[in-house]
Structure formats: C-alpha cells, structure tokens
Design a protein around this nucleic acid. Structure first.
Length: 770
DNA sequence: CAGTGAGCGAGCTTCCGCTTGACTT
C-alpha cells in the first residue's frame, strides 16, 4: 500500500494516473459527488441562513467507506478532483466526509492527463478554495429551492409528478415558443428567375446556369422579365475573381460533438454519449464531458506529426483555440483521441464511427486553411432590366478540407457553389437556351432537434456538458415534449419556362414540411410552460441563468457571501410561490371548437386525466362522448373538422367467424379488436377506411405469429413459455419471469416452471415501475 | 397494452451536476 492516496472523480482517469505516478501512490476515484442534499425533503434550513444538510448518497456509501479506510493509512491524501466549481466542492466534501487532517491533505489540479502535467501538479499543491466551494453551494441550494418549490406548485395547479427547474423549464420554453412561431408563420411566395446559357464560341454541350439575385413578388413581374428575354442578346458583362480562406473548426466539446454526431451520423444525444463513454473507458479518447476546446501540447505535437507524415508539411498549422461559450469552466481538454496515431481502433461499428469523427475533427483543427478561388460572372442584355449572376468556387488548396467539413443544421441552404464554370471572357456572347421562373416559398423557422436545442442552451449558458442529454430526457419523461417524425404535405407552385420563343406556364407540386427526429411540445408541456411564463416570469427568463452565474462568480471571487445571494433571490421568489398557490386557480387548457352538426351539441377539446381529449356535449351532459386526440394534434391548433373526425371511431368493420371486427386508434396507433385481442393496423392502414378483407388477412397473419411465439403451454395453470424480444421467458397471468441461464426453454416442465415462479416471487421485491 | 374521463384521501412526486454500473420482457 502506497503512502500517498490520490482521489480523482473518474475511475478511468484513476487508472491512467496510477501508471504515471508509480509506486508509493494509490489512485482512487470518488465517482463524482459523494454527498448531496437529502432527496426526501428540502435539505435546506431556510431559517438558519439556508444551511444545507448534506447526506452521503446511498450509492456512494461503499466508495466513501473504502476511501476512508485508505485515507487513514495514507501519509498524504491528494484531492485531485476537477478544477471547476463542482470539482472544488467534491474536494471539500471529501475532506469533510473522510475526516481528513489539514496537515495531511493537499489539493492539486491538472487540465490534461499527461505525466508532466501530473508531476507538475504534485509539485504545486494548494489548499481548498472555500470561495469556490461556496459558489457551488449557492448553485446547488438555488437549484434545489427552485426545483422543490416550483414543482409542488405544478402538482397542485396542474397535475402531480410534474417538474420545473432552472434549466428544464427554459429548455421547454424554447420548444413551445418555437412551435408557436411556426404556427403563426405564413409562407409567402416569390419568384426566382434562372437562365441557362451557352457561350457562343463553345460547343453546344457547354452550359452555364445563372440566376437573377432579386426575387419577384408575383407571377406578372416574373413574366415581364421572361418576356423581355425572348429577343434579348446576352453577353458576359463582368468577371470577378476573389480569393477567400476558410479556417478549420475548433476541436470537439460535448456540445459540438453532439451536434456533429447528430448531423453527420444521425446519432441521438444518448447514443453519442454512450459511444463516447465506451471510447473513453477503453482509453481511446479523452474525457467526453467538457466545455473546453483546449488541446494539450502533446496532442498538438502528435497531430502535427501525423499531418506531416500523411499529407505533407504544407498541410500542418498548429493552432490554440479559445473557448467562447458562456459560463465555460474548462476543467478538461477538448474531446480528442488519446493518441493521434491511432487511426483504427477495436470497437463496435457505432463506436468506431464516432471515433473516426473525433479523429478527423481533431486532426483538421491543426491543419492549414483552405484557399478558395471564387469566380463571379454577370450576364446582361441591353433589353433586360436585371442581370444574371453565376458563382463558382474552386478549391485551390484544400488544407483541412482534405479530412473534415463541418455540417450545417439547415440542409436547404442554397449556398453551394459547386458548379464548374468553363473558361469565359468579358464581353463574350452568350446564347440564351432557357429562362425559368419558379415560385419559391419562404421557409418556416426550423423545429429544434435534440442537438440544435443543446446548441441553443449552450449559447444561453444554461446547463452543463453532463446535463444536456439528461435534461432533454427529463422533458420527454414528463410528457412535455416528444421526439417525432411527421410526414410532409403537398403544395403546388408555379413555373414559367421560356424555351425558343415561347413561354409555357405549369403548375407543379412539391412536398414540404417533412420533419425527422424533431422536438414537438405536447399539450401538457404547453400548459406548464404558459403557467410558468405567466406566474414565474423571472425563472424562465432566458437571461436568468446568465445573471445568476455572474453572482456565483462574485461568490467565487470572495466579493459576495453565498447565503446573502440566496436570501436576496429567495425572499421575492417564495412570496411569488405563496401568491400563486393561494390566488391563482388551477391551470387548465380548454378550447371550444364549435357545435357538432349531427347533434347540435358543443364540441370542445381539453386536457383530461389521461391526456388531451375531444368532447361532444357539456360536462353535465350524461350522454357526452369522449375521444383522445391523435398523435400530432394539439389543443391549441386542432380544428372542428379534425375533432369531429375522431368520433368516426371505433368503427365496426364487419364479422369474421361470428365475431365482430372493430377498428380504432389507441395509445400505440391504429388497431383492430377481434376476439378479445388487439392487432396493430400499422402505419399504412387507416382505421376509418380499411376493408374487411384487409382486416381478416391481418387477423390471420397475427394468429400464425402468435402460434410461433408459444414454445410450451400449461393451459390448466395459466402458465406459458413464450418467445419474446429478449429470448424465451415464462408468463403467468400478467407477470413475466426470466428463465435461469443454461436452462433450455424446451426442457422446462410444469414442475420447473412453478419453481422458477415461486423463487422469483419470494426473492427480491419487484422493481419499481417507471 | 389499446375499454377509462366519480370522488375520497394517504402518501408520493420534484431540482442540477458530478460519476458509473445494474438491468432490461
């Protein structure tokens, strides 16, 4: 046992550092925070200066007792948690919890996991920075007060089990407000005019496309331009050449990695973080929860080596990047490969793809600028009032573009100039081949993806690398938002085409508004957001976090006392909570849509106990009818026609073997109910129009599948052995039981099945249902 | 698992940020 105990936050880090330090040093991990406020109650003594009551978290008791034993034996304990607010607090909680002696304890920090950095840190220990610890305490207490006072207001005024908080409520607000912007948006159309030309002295196959930069408000204006082109003689009036440079993007932080993995690889936030965790634990990349774009000297040097070897010296350019995001704490390096020379790693295909992305981005960040030659030509005619322009970009030196090109969120960008231009000269005659005017619609604001929401949160300085993905998961779990795909709609647009000397007009159709993996608010999310915006304006203000962060910084600098800050915040906040509880009525979303032409009764939509519903008839009407709203329908936007359509279901389609076939839409989409079982209709069948024949064929398909599902059945006991998604299992009534390892499902007899069931029922308590 | 949408009341729900497993019907 070494005489020195070093404690870091992450076990993977501990393993690496232990190798650098050698004998005499034991390196252990605290697995993050070890103490926190009680989960059961507020955990803050408000009367007594907001004194927090800390408890050792249940899942940390084992770690703490292990560390305590090791600390007792050690000569010196080195607290090596991260150099940021949270890390400093972890060091202090360790100091308190492990009963460390000041004279035997040293606080050290390092930003990169290299031998030099760590040895240097050991040479330069310091004490625990109590101002920074108190800044963290202020952050923690404020978040607890907001979360644990605001959430109960929602339970009383909206619905139980809901939640609100400094971070999640702002994230929700962004999504709800964007949805409203989209709904209020009305697309306008304008005409774009493009021409296709052939340089007079070149082969007929040589063509140049050019566009009039202005847009035309209506068809008449576009037609006028086309008419003026009929007999026009065109020539090149101007050629301009410009050289521009492009610089590579900075190395990855958590947020930019999430964005690029989403855009380039189609990964969700959780997929990205899972893969990154795997890569980190295997030692392939540096720490994946970081807001820093900094690279270690060693990383920069080895990137330079790899670039020079692979592409030549002219491709290398070493660069230091500066973090510009608000509230960054920079305890770690950027996310990069641990060894740049590691091109190929052993990992799952998904992990490999992410690694490859990180490798390329890191390498590119140390490469030369790309130089781009932009050629812009103008084609004009004395008889046409507008000029046509064409732009072509030619990469004269690819530089970093050899390995990496950053993607954009907005995929409909018209900024590509990938077109090649033939050799042209000023004054050259251009034969006009065709001129086309196309009606173009303005684009609605884009819905957020998980990744673009993270980008926005980071810009606002809200949330941290470790919480971006969990925050969005929480919003989903509460039913506030849903990640969904939505089909597009068709719309028509006009096109005018001039060829030879005739203008032909046509109406064409395009599909627009297709949404893939976008975040949509649900009715309950809209209701909660509106309630918070109305009653707690300050908390959901986009600048609230930024303002409070400035105060936390003052605490960290010793210029402000932490509980003074909390008290100034809490007094008005708590008053507002009390007022809202006593004064305001329960929040409900209800909209009257009109009257049902069949019954003459009122049609309304509202939020019921099981979600949004449409209702025909007043609440006191004993014959009132209910239907749940379908996926994608919102109380705020549903029309009377759409609501009435819901009542076409359930629909009796017909009879089969003397049993009724009924179609309806449930929680999991459209289904058939037949003979007591539910059969999915799938996405392609509309329950309102599906034929009897189709239903019967689906029922038969379903029953053959069911037959294959069963391995064995002990009907008299109600026990079945079935094939499921995760392999064979035993089912009795509504409960499922795992088959022990090594037991062939076919070999189970009734006796064995009973035993397995009895064992499971007596054993550990059933897991809490989420 | 998809049918529900009364009402009473006890007991519970909930935050943000650090960190990994355990476990999956």
């Amino acid at each position: 046992m070494g005489e020195n105990l070093v404690i870091v936050e992450s076990p993977a880090k501990a393993k690496t550092i232990e190798k650098f330090l050698g004998s005499g040093f034991t390196v252990k991990s605290s697995f993050g925070h070890i103490r926190d406020l009680s989960k059961k109650n507020l955990g803050i003594d408000i009367e007594n200066g907001f004194e927090p009551e800390y408890l050792i978290s249940d899942d940390k008791k084992k770690v703490v007792s292990e560390l305590k034993a090791l600390a007792k034996k050690a000569q010196t304990v080195w607290l090596a948690s991260d150099e940021d607010r949270e890390g400093e607090a972890i060091a202090w909680h360790l100091f308190k919890t492990l009963d460390l002696k000041p004279e035997k304890t040293k606080r050290i920090v390092f930003h990169e996991i290299t031998k030099d950095a760590i040895l240097n840190a050991i040479e330069n220990p310091r004490g625990i920075d109590m101002n920074l610890v108190m800044a963290q305490q202020a952050r923690r207490v404020l978040d607890r007060l907001v979360g644990f006072e605001l959430s109960p207001v929602l339970w009383k005024k909206v619905k139980p089990k809901l939640s609100a908080g400094r971070v999640q409520s702002v994230a929700l607000r962004l999504i709800v407000e964007r949805e409203r912007e989209i709904q209020q948006f009305s697309a306008k159309s304008q005409f774009k005019v493009e021409g296709l030309f052939n340089p007079a002295d070149q082969a007929k196959t040589v063509k140049v496309t050019a566009e009039i930069p202005e847009r035309f408000d209506n068809e008449e204006a576009a037609l006028k331009v086309l008419k003026s082109c009929i007999d026009a003689q065109f020539q090149i009036s101007d050629i301009e050449e410009k050289e521009s440079r492009r610089t590579p993007p900075a190395p990855f932080t958590t947020s930019t990695l999430q964005q690029e993995a989403s855009r380039k690889l189609g990964f969700s936030l959780n997929q990205t973080m899972k893969s990154a965790q795997n890569l980190y634990e295997s030692g392939y990349i540096t720490y994946m929860r970081t807001d820093s774009v900094n690279l270690s000297k060693m990383a920069i040097a080895s990137a330079k080596q790899v670039i020079t070897d692979m592409y030549g010296k002219e491709y290398s350019k070493t660069r230091q990047y500066a973090t510009k995001s608000k509230g960054a704490q920079e305890a770690h390096e950027a996310i990069r490969p641990t060894y740049m020379s590691n091109l190929d790693i052993e990992a799952s295909p998904q992990d490999k793809r992410l690694y490859n992305l990180i490798w390329k981005r890191t390498l590119a960040s140390q490469m030369a600028d790309a130089t781009i030659q932009r050629t812009q030509i103008s084609i004009t005619s004395a008889s046409v009032a507008h000029k046509f322009e064409a732009t072509a970009d030619r990469v004269t030196f690819d530089g970093f573009l050899k390995v990496y090109m950053e993607s954009k969120d907005d995929d409909s960008s018209e900024e590509d100039h990938e077109m090649m231009l033939p050799a042209l000269t000023k004054g050259q005659q251009m034969n006009r081949l065709a001129i086309k005017a196309t009606e173009k619609y303005t684009q609605k604001p884009p819905r957020y993806t998980e990744a673009s929401l993270v980008k926005k949160l980071e810009e606002l300085g809200i949330g941290r690398p470790s919480t971006y993905a969990p925050t969005i998961s929480t919003l989903s779990q509460r039913g506030y938002i849903v990640k969904d795909n939505r089909p597009g709609q068709e719309r028509s647009y006009k096109e005018l085409l001039l060829e030879k000397s005739e203008i032909v007009s046509a109406v064409k159709t395009e599909v627009w508004g297709v949404e893939k993996s976008k975040l949509f608010p649900e009715d309950i999310g809209i209701l909660v957001n509106d309630f918070l915006v109305e009653n707690f304006q300050k908390i959901v203000d986009y600048n609230f976090t930024a303002g409070i962060e400035e105060n936390f910084d003052l605490v960290a600098e010793g210029k402000l006392v932490w509980n003074r800050l909390i008290s100034d915040f809490y007094t008005p906040f708590h008053t507002r909570v009390d007022e809202t509880l006593t004064i305001s009525r329960p929040a409900s979303a209800e909209r009257v849509l009109g009257t049902d032409p069949k019954s003459g009764k009122k049609v309304l939509v509202r939020l019921g106990r099981f979600g949004p519903l449409a209702q025909i008839g007043d609440t006191d009407d004993p014959e009132k009818r209910f239907m749940s709203l379908s996926k994608g329908q919102l109380i705020e936007t549903i029309t009377l026609e759409e609501a009435l359509k819901l009542f076409d279901l359930p629909r009796v389609v017909g009879d089969h073997n003397g049993q009724e076939i009924v179609c309806a839409i449930g929680r999991f989409g459209p289904y058939i109910r037949y003979n007591g079982s539910f059969i999915s209709l799938g996405k392609d069948n509309d329950p309102r129009t599906v034929t009897l024949e189709k239903c019967i064929s689906l029922i038969e398909e379903h029953s053959t599948k069911e037959a294959q599902k069963s391995i064995k059945s002990f009907a008299e006991e109600g026990i079945d052995i079935l094939n499921g998604r995760f392999g064979a299992y035993i089912k009795k009534g509504k409960n499922n039981y795992k088959i022990p390892k090594g037991v062939a499902p076919e070999s189970i007899d009734l006796e064995m099945a009973r035993e397995i069931i009895a064992k499971a029922d007596n054993g550990s308590k059933p897991r809490k249902k989420r």
